[in-house]
Design a protein around this nucleic acid. Sequence first.
DNA 1: GTAGGGTTAG
Length: 624
Amino acid sequence: MNLLRKLNCLFHYYPKSAPFSSLVSSFTTHQLTLTTFPPNPQIVLTTLCSNGQLKEALIEMAARGLEMKFESYDMLLNACIKKRAFREGQRVHAHMIKTRYLPPVYLRNRLIILYSKCDRLREARNVLDEMLEKDVVSWTAMISAYSQRGFATEALDLFLEMLRSVTEPNEFTFTAVLSSCTGTFGFELGKQIHSLIIKRTLDTHIFVGSSLLDMYFKAGRIHEAREVFESPPERDVVSCTAIISGYAQLGLDAEALELFRRLNLEGMSSNYVTYASVLTALSGLAALDLGKQVHNHVLRCKLPFYVVLQNSLIDIKCGNLIYSRRIFDNMPERTVISWTAMLVGYSKHGMGREGVLSGCSHGGMENVGLEIFEEMVNGKNGVEPDIEHYGCVVDLLVRAGRVEEAFQFIKKMPFEPTAALWGSLLGACKVHSNIDVGEFVGHRLLEIDPESAGNYVILSNLYASMGRWEDVRMVRDLMLKKAVKKEPGRSWIELDQTLHSFHASDPIPSHPRREEVFAKMKELSIKFKEAGYVPDLSCVLHDVDEEQKEKIFLGHSEKLALTFGLISTSDRAPLRVIKNLRTCVDCHNFAKFVSKIYMREVYLKDKNRFHHISMGVCSCGDYW
DNA sequence: GTAGGGTTAG
C-alpha cells in the first residue's frame, strides 16, 4: 500500500520514465489497483499518450466523461496526429460534441491537421467551415492540405476566401498556396501573390523563395525563376535543389548539371532529392560515367529513400539495359515508378516482348500490340483502356506506316484527341508522305496547339517534300507572326567525364575543334559514299539546290558529335551521343556507316529512344 | 500548432 502511494507521488515528477509508464499500463489493465490508488489522472493520460497507447487512452477518456479539458484533448489529439489515427481522432472529436465541450480555435486547428494528415479532407473542411473564428493557422493548415494532395483549385479558392476574411496570410500561407499556382489562372494569381510578398518585404524568406521559384519553373519562366534564386542572400538544400530540378524538368539537362557543379563548388549541401534531380539531368544527357560517379557517391552516403534514387538509376542505366535490370532485380522494394522505368527502358530499346503495348510500336510488332488492345477493349485483361492506351495504338499504327487506319481510329475514339496524338499522326504523315491526312491534321494542330514549334516545322517539311514552296512560306510566315521559336538541335558526347556540346547551325563556333570536325566530316562523307552511303535529303527544310541541302545536313549536330568522337577516342572505343530532338533518317544512316566502317559501337540517344548501332545494324530495327 | 525541392511516363 505504502509502496504504491509512494510510486503514485513519483509519477508527478517522472511521468515519462519507462518504469513508470509500464506501471501506468498495469494500473489501467488492473482496474482494481487503479481505483484503489488512482494516480494523478492527467499524468495517466500523458503517459498513455506519449507511449502511443491510444486504445488505453481512449478508455481513460470515456471513463472521465465531463472531466476532460483542454490539456487532455490536446494530448489525445497530438497522439492521434502522430499516429495518423483517423478512427481514434474521430472518437475524440465525437467526445467533444457529446459532452458539449466547445473547443477553442487551437484545438479545432489540431482537428483540421489531424484529418488532413489522415487524407480525410472532407472532414477537415467541415471543421474549418464550422469555425466562427479562424486564425491564420486554421486557413493555412487547410490550404496546405489541399496543396500537398494536388487539389490546386480548392487551395486557390480557399486562399481567395481567406483574402476576403479578416485574417492576414503569413509566410506559411504563401509557401503553401504558391505550390498550387500552376496553370494559366494559378500562374496569374501566383504573380499577384509575388507582388504582394514584395510589398510585405518577405522576398528573402527562404521557404517562400523556393516555392516561388518552383512556380516560375512550372510555368516555364526560367528568367523569373533565376531572378528569384539570385535575389535572396540565403540559400539552402531545398532552394538549390528546386532550381536544379527546375532546369532538369524543362529538359535543360546540361544547364541543370552545370548549376549543380557550380553550387557544389560554392558549398551547397545535397540530399537524396538533390541527387534524384541530378540523376534526371544525367539521364537526359545519357552521361553514363557521370551517372556512375553519382551512383557510387549515393551508395557511400547510404542516403534515405533509396528507392527513389534507384528509380532514377534504372532510368539512367537504360543506356545499358543489363545494368538497369541488375539494379531493378536487386531492389529490396519496388514502386510503380520502378516498374515503369524498367518497362520504358525495354521499350526504348525496341525489346517489345518485355515492354508490352508501347514497346510493340518500337519493336515493329504492331499486330501483337493491336491484339493486346483488342483484349483490353473486350475486358479480358482487367484493364479498361484509357486515353494513353489509345495513344499507344495510334503510335504503333503510325510507326508501321498505317497512317490512314490511325486517322480513322482517332476519329472513332471515345476521347477528345490530345495535341500529342495528332502530333504523332502528323509526324507519320511526313515520313510516309501522306499529304491529305497531313494537311488536315497539321492545320487542326496549329489551332489547338499554336505555341508548339514542332508542328509548324513538320507541316512545312511536309509541304517542302511535295515541292509546295508557297505553302512552306505560308507556314513559316505564320510561325514568325506568332513568334514561335523552334528548339535548336543540339548533341552531346561524353569524353573523360566532360560533355562536349554541338549545335546545328550556330554562327558562333560552339566547340573549339569545330573546324577540325568539319574537315574530317567532308572526308567521311566521301569515304561513306564509296561504301554505298546515299544522303537522304527527304527531310529538306529549304528551297535550295541539292548541294546546299547536303551541306545543311552535314551540319546536323549529331553528325558533328559523332565525328568529334571519332577523332578524339582510341580505335574501336564505343561512341555515346545524345540528341535533344528526334534524330533524322540521314543522321541515323550516317551513324550506321560510322559503326560499320570504323568498327565502333554507337549508342545514340534521341528524344524518344535509344539506338544501339553495331556493324551497321540498329537495335531500333529502323522504327523510331 | 500551419510552409518549400524529388524518382517513371505523357
